[in-house]
Simulated assay, not measured.
Amino acid sequence: MDTSEIEKSKAHITVEIIEYIPNSVVIKTILKKSTGNISVMSFDSGEGLTEKTSPFDTFAQIIEGDAEIVISGNSNLLHTGQSIVIPAHASNLVKPNGRFKMILTVIKSGYE
């Protein structure tokens, strides 16, 4: 069994897959394939992700709390239940707005 992914063929409460750890960003892999991956992340208050770019489209879903996702300089404040597509090759960063959890789905398609 691949222990880097969550258990298959078993129901999960998505928001409970990952816990908060003080002063940390925690990442848990749901699925990891050559064609893409799905991860759930928790961010403690004051924690975020630095600016980066990805060669692939990324779908970000907020599953608990609020977060600011800045894409190519444009700020987007997302709340629980909201999502956004981060286009391939666009600079992006995640700013904290208190504790929050999100799911990131990366689709590794052909050359974009």
Rank of each mutant, 00 (worst) to 15 (best):
G73Y: 06
S34N: 07
L31N: 11
I30G: 09
I18R: 05
I62C: 09
I17F: 06
I27Y: 05
I69C: 10
G36W: 04
L104V: 14
V40S: 12
I30Q: 08
Y111L: 08
R99Q: 15
F43A: 02
P22A: 12
D44H: 11
E16A: 12
S9A: 04
N76R: 01
T53M: 10
G65C: 09
S42N: 08
I30M: 14
G73P: 07
L78W: 15
K52D: 11
G36E: 03
T3D: 01
G81L: 05
Q61F: 09
I107G: 10
T80H: 10
L93E: 13
N76M: 03
P55G: 07
T3M: 02
A88P: 05
N23R: 11
D66G: 00
F56G: 00
K52I: 03
M1D: 11
T3L: 10
T53G: 02
Y20R: 08
I21T: 10
T105F: 08
V26A: 13
R99L: 09
G48E: 06
L78M: 15
H12D: 06
I21D: 02
H79A: 10
I30K: 07
G110F: 14
S24T: 10
I13Y: 10
N76A: 02
L31D: 09
I6K: 10
T58L: 00
F56T: 00
K8D: 07
I107A: 14
G73F: 08
T29R: 07
T29C: 06
T105D: 06
G65M: 09
S72Q: 07
K33V: 01
A60F: 14
N76I: 02
A90I: 00
A67I: 09
S75E: 14
I18H: 06
F43I: 06
Q82I: 10
E68S: 02
S39Q: 11
S39T: 12
I18V: 14
P22K: 12
V26E: 15
E64A: 13
V70F: 00
K108S: 07
Y111C: 03
G65F: 11
N74D: 03
N37S: 15
Y20N: 10
I103T: 09
S75I: 08
I6Q: 04
